[in-house]
Design a protein around this nucleic acid. Sequence first.
DNA 1: TCTTGACTCTTACCTTACGTCATAGCCTAC
DNA 2: GTAGGCTATGACGTAAGGTAAGAGTCAAGA
Lengths: 251, 251
Amino acid sequence: MTKYTVKKLAKAAGVSVRTLHHYDRIGLLKPSIRTAVGYRLYGENELLRLQQILFYKELDFGLKEIAALINRPDFDRIRALESQKQLLKARRKRIDRLMSTLDKTILHIKGKIKMNYEELYEGLPKEQAAAWRKEALEKWPDQVKQSEKVLIGMSMEEFEVLKSGFKENFETLASLCGHGADPASERVQQEIDRHYHYILRFWGKPGNQVEAYKGLGELYLADPRYTGTGGAPFGLFMKQAIDHYVTSLPA
Amino acid sequence: MTKYTVKKLAKAAGVSVRTLHHYDRIGLLKPSIRTAVGYRLYGENELLRLQQILFYKELDFGLKEIAALINRPDFDRIRALESQKQLLKARRKRIDRLMSTLDKTILHIKGKIKMNYEELYEGLPKEQAAAWRKEALEKWPDQVKQSEKVLIGMSMEEFEVLKSGFKENFETLASLCGHGADPASERVQQEIDRHYHYILRFWGKPGNQVEAYKGLGELYLADPRYTGTGGAPFGLFMKQAIDHYVTSLPA
DNA sequence: TCTTGACTCTTACCTTACGTCATAGCCTAC
DNA sequence: GTAGGCTATGACGTAAGGTAAGAGTCAAGA
């Protein structure tokens, strides 16, 4: 006859030793033998009984109810089990409802996030945002997807900090351009460096992204909002500044 | 602006007053106002927040987690909700497995009950039981189904008491028949009265069941085990006793 | 105006099914 | 023979409230 010590029975049934102590104390599952020094020893019967107990526990019966159930006759058990079946059915329905509510909630929040994301481009006219993003999506689809994944995984505070810093940086560059600064000047290059690092953080992937960043310069150049507007040609300014920055970077 | 007292808010949201006190103490949901004497007053905002809380609670978040969730930004919430969705999926699967195990268990127990049920006819040779039940099922299918439903719903003790009483009654009748008692005699009729009431309890439905009981008499008569055996013709004895009993009953 | 009944407050112990020490004895293997 | 792993009991901790006690408050009818 196989004998189990507490730990062995616990492992066999997937419960904790403390649980067995507890069941012993409340009289739900007592060891078949106590050794001379008080060690608990369980037999096969106890393992079976424990499995019964765990079965009822899965069904959310309380330990007292379980104690009653496994002593009480079969007729009563059938009634208990059948009412439990009803409970399970109801619970499954509730879970289904929760799941759909959950999906709706997630979609709702994602909608809000998308709005925030578009606010990022506030520096330029609002309609522009979508267009710019669309073009970026064509040029570097993986890049943009990765970027959005990063944003989704970012906390609201991080996002806010990043956004406002980026905006400020962008406005500084616009201002420098407006004042006729040289795209290759140290002041502008300093700001472009910040710009580059913001872009890197939006893109999520660290490391060498110079090629993509160079492409971003062309995007500024190609954008009619930046090439044609009155005053200094901001798109060209950005492209030149970025080109200079990229070529002056250490290999 | 609508204001809710504790009880009103509790009723509106379907929780207990104690729960609101608790949420106040742990800082999860504080009333917008405390009156001069310390009464809690909640506004619409608090109702909405409470609904949020209950939503997360349905998803099995702990109160601390909920407090974190409803303060934390949307990006984090999406992640939490999405992992919760996975949990719900897993739980639904587990419920499905439980349901099928439950069905099997119920069937198993019902099988055992059926065996016990057949023991009921122990007074007569074992093979007879099934045959008798089959015939009864043809004559009064609803009656028998109802009877089994009643037995299933009965506790083991009730069943045992009923069974042994019925058996004893049956044996007394057999003995009376064996000693050549008159089916219409008071002693036999007294026993038949007990018999009738046992049958009523097996059938579960109280009220006038005389017609069916009369039919039962014919069943005894038609049964070759009772008509042809050596000694007194027990089947005929029972039919006559039952007939006499039924006709002598008050309308 | 007084009283009654419904409501409110705080404080504080109770519950379930264990988890988590703390302290101490036991057993086995090198 | 001693270290490392097992065992025991006892006692306190946990989450999310339930339940009860003692006391103050409010609105309405007699």
